[in-house]
């Protein structure tokens, strides 16, 4: 089994600052980490790979320092890493990103399963997984909450979709996107940390992908959606009434609030 895991290096969301006046995002004080959902994708891949004698390749697109995310994934057990990095890739939207990732998956060779997290915590679109499947021309199963069974030919998973849960069986090649419920990611091991320090990370630029990648479809030029403006909204104003050792008043006010929004009838 050859499994490709899509990962993204994201800022530590707790430390990102948002400047409301300037409409700017300041990531400078925030460190980076692997997008939390992608750790679940990696864990799913590692478990399947261990039981099928497979190989796990982590793939990311980003600036040179995104290499750290790949080394961390290898420290957690992945076999190898591929970094797609080129100024030409900068400014890519969902479509351009999916186009670049899918062309790299094609170039990397035969694969059975691609696993991605359901969304990134920064871009937050949750669309790249399904679009990569679209550009690869393979089916996908999204919002996978549990992996029930797998063989060399297919995988059975629980997909949370259509206001319910469905047990779906997908034949390879297939892409799945996973939620946090699918597993608990393992921590890096000492042995793998040593390996991650030494391992060679494959780096591909546009030049390496040009046989499978149309230059008009990447980067800002190849991105049909463009951010025109960023707004940092003010937190909505709330009543903000505080009650401490004053239950009676609290209950009275709550009852009135329930009445004024017509949840309770007026007495």
């Amino acid at each position: 089994m050859n499994i490709v895991v899509l990962v993204k290096q994201v800022p530590d969301m707790e430390k990102v600052k948002f400047d409301r006046e300037a409409g700017r995002i300041d990531r400078s004080s925030a460190g980076t980490e692997i997008n939390p959902f992608d750790l679940n994708a990696l864990e799913a891949a590692l478990q399947i790979s261990e039981n099928t004698n497979g190989k796990v390749t982590v793939l990311t697109m980003g600036p040179a320092q995104a290499e750290e995310a790949l080394r961390e994934a290898i420290a957690r057990g992945a076999d190898e890493g591929i970094l797609l990095t080129d100024v030409k890739f900068g400014g890519s939207d969902v479509k351009a990103t999916s186009t670049i990732l899918s062309s790299a998956i094609k170039k990397a060779g035969q694969f059975d399963l691609v696993i991605a997290g359901i969304q990134s915590v920064d871009g937050d679109t949750g669309q790249v997984g399904a679009e990569v499947a679209g550009y690869l021309g393979i089916p996908h199963i999204s919002n996978v909450e549990a992996i029930k069974n797998y063989t060399e030919e297919y995988i059975e998973v629980v997909s949370s979709v259509w206001e319910s849960q469905y047990l779906k069986r997908g034949k390879y090649p297939l892409l799945i996107t996973v939620t946090k419920d699918v597993n608990v990611p393992r921590l890096p091991s000492f042995k793998n940390k040593m390996k991650a320090r030494k391992v060679e990370i494959t780096k591909w630029s546009y030049e390496d992908l040009k046989e499978v990648l149309d230059p008009s479809k990447i980067g800002i030029k190849g991105s049909p959606t463009k951010v025109k403006k960023i707004e940092v909204p003010q937190q909505s104003m709330r009543e903000g009434k505080l009650y401490k050792e004053n239950d009676e008043k609290a209950v009275e006010d709550i009852l009135n609030a329930l009445k004024s929004c017509k949840v309770l009838k007026e007495a």
Binding site: M13, V227, K229, I230, E231, P233
Partner: peptide
């Protein structure tokens, strides 16, 4: 985006 911290205006 950014875990609901910003609002982006986007055109296609």
């Amino acid at each position: 985006a950014f875990s609901e911290n910003i609002l982006a205006h986007i055109k296609s």
